[in-house]
């Protein structure tokens, strides 16, 4: 399997007063194309920090991190933004939809940044909205949608550009059981159809059930990294 992310001997420190706090220590991980993996662990174990680093929002302190073959430490702010724009999708716990824009416009926004022509944008948006089952909500504003629908819009927004990597930070934390399962099944479906690598940060058992690979983080270190067979995925 071709690796989309390679992490070698990676450590991340944060300055605290005159000393430093080690958030991640000696991390060695590879993520292949089409993976459906999760970083699992309690709060403070370093899940979000790791997700931010592979999402080019942050840099490691030591070691090497390559995303799609690019050493992220040498990327300029602009190059990192371009990388996110073209190849990385994000899904957040609180959806973070743009409240004054319609469902269509929210999903269209990443394509505007990519400077796609209007017709192509429209086709891609409608295609992904059909996948998430929201073609009837095209003109609705986020305030008119349920939590599950909002998260589906967020998934559509992240997937519309067909990214190589999708990073999801606690995507079901604000959803009830039914909606969580619906969302996760949708993501599994997209992962299979689009071959996008999904990496979750979670401590939600509902999510963990769906993972094909489970990476346990504890105090900033990889405690275990196991493949798991599950019927849902």
């Amino acid at each position: 399997m071709q690796n989309v992310i390679e992490i070698r001997n990676m450590t991340k420190h944060y300055p605290v007063g005159t000393g430093k706090f080690t958030a991640l220590e000696d991390i060695n991980l590879q993520f292949g194309k089409g993976e459906f993996a999760g970083l699992v662990g309690p709060s403070g174990s370093g899940k979000t920090t790791l997700l931010n680093i592979v999402g080019t929002l942050d840099n490691q302190s030591e070691g090497e991190v390559a995303v799609l073959g690019n050493d992220i430490r040498i990327l300029s702010s602009r190059q990192a933004a371009d990388m996110r724009s073209e190849h990385i999708g994000f899904i957040f716990q609180t959806y973070n939809l743009l409240p004054h824009y319609t469902v269509f416009e929210n999903v269209e926004f990443p394509l505007i940044l990519l400077k796609y022509p209007a017709k192509k944008r429209s086709d891609l948006v409608m295609e992904v909205l059909e996948m998430v089952g929201l073609t009837d909500k095209v003109k609705s504003k986020p305030a008119k949608l349920s939590g599950g629908q909002c998260q589906r819009v967020a998934i559509a927004r992240a997937m519309v550009k067909k990214p190589a990597i999708l990073l999801a930070d606690e995507p079901t934390a604000n959803l009830d059981v039914d909606n969580s399962h619906n969302i996760l099944q949708l993501m599994v479906k997209m992962n299979k159809e689009m071959n996008t690598s999904f990496i979750f940060s979670t401590h939600d058992e509902k999510v963990i059930r769906y993972l094909r690979r489970k990476i346990n983080l504890l105090d900033g270190k990889v405690a275990s990294d196991t493949e798991q067979l599950n019927n849902d995925a």
Partner: peptide, 16 residues
């Protein structure tokens, strides 16, 4: 703040 953050995550550069 939320909007600015999500736009950056989506890939909008700080300068843009």
């Amino acid at each position: 703040y939320g909007e600015i953050g999500v736009r950056m995550a989506i890939g909008e550069s700080k300068l843009h």
